[in-house]
């Protein structure tokens, strides 16, 4: 049987190198550094406890992300249940589907606007996207997980991943336009 110290060393060798990548995602999910650090500690503790369930040779980063997302959902769920919070399922329910085309498709002007925005503004625009869609956008566009992997992490069908990603992209695009408007880079 694997000794505890060997197990710990194997965990440090395989899981800890992903800390920075997970930190970036935790930051985008929670929208502040302090919460991101707490979330990541919780994630790594859970991962360590359940490290026996991780199969060596499989995608460790994806396994860690699944734990991060689960811990993050609990974390964000608690926050959204605080007074004044909004359940994201409610938001999703009232948002129009792809067929309603809530936002105009990107234009070459949008590409130029994107180049004019500062890094922090782009990150702030992403942070303004509701959590349900933001998670999928981060996992697909930033971390480049496959739809199948994302579906596994979020425990949702692939079709839901596709529709959330579609909406997430459009909401982010609109959020970026709004940021550009505030900067005076775009006029209606």
């Amino acid at each position: 049987m694997e000794q505890e110290e060997e197990r710990r060393q194997r965990f440090e060798r395989e899981a800890l190198p992903h800390l920075n990548a997970l930190f970036g995602t935790a930051l985008r999910l929670t929208r502040n550094r302090s919460d991101a650090e707490d979330l990541l500690q919780e994630t790594y503790l859970r991962a360590f406890r359940f490290f026996d369930r991780y199969q060596p040779g499989t995608h460790c980063k994806a396994w860690l992300y699944r734990i991060l997302i689960n811990a993050g959902m609990n974390f964000l769920g608690k926050k959204s249940r605080q007074p004044g919070g909004v359940q994201f399922e409610d938001v999703e329910a009232v948002l129009p589907g792809p067929e309603a085309t809530p936002v105009q498709a990107p234009t070459r002007g949008d590409i130029a606007l994107l180049a004019d925005l500062l890094d922090d503004e782009v990150q702030a625009a992403l942070a303004a996207v509701p959590e349900t869609f933001r998670i999928v956008v981060i996992l697909a566009l930033v971390e480049e997980f496959s739809y199948k992997e994302i579906a596994g992490m979020l425990d949702i069908p692939i079709g839901t991943v596709m529709s959330r990603l579609y909406r997430g992209r459009r909401l982010l695009q609109e959020s970026l336009r709004e940021t550009a408007r505030e900067r005076g880079l775009l006029r209606d």
Binding site: G24, L117, D119, L126
Partner: peptide
């Protein structure tokens, strides 16, 4: 083109303290 630009802008490397 928009998607490629967006991915680039979103991928800011964060370093955990």
């Amino acid at each position: 083109a928009y998607d490629a630009a967006l991915r680039l802008r979103l991928r800011r490397t964060e370093v955990a303290p």
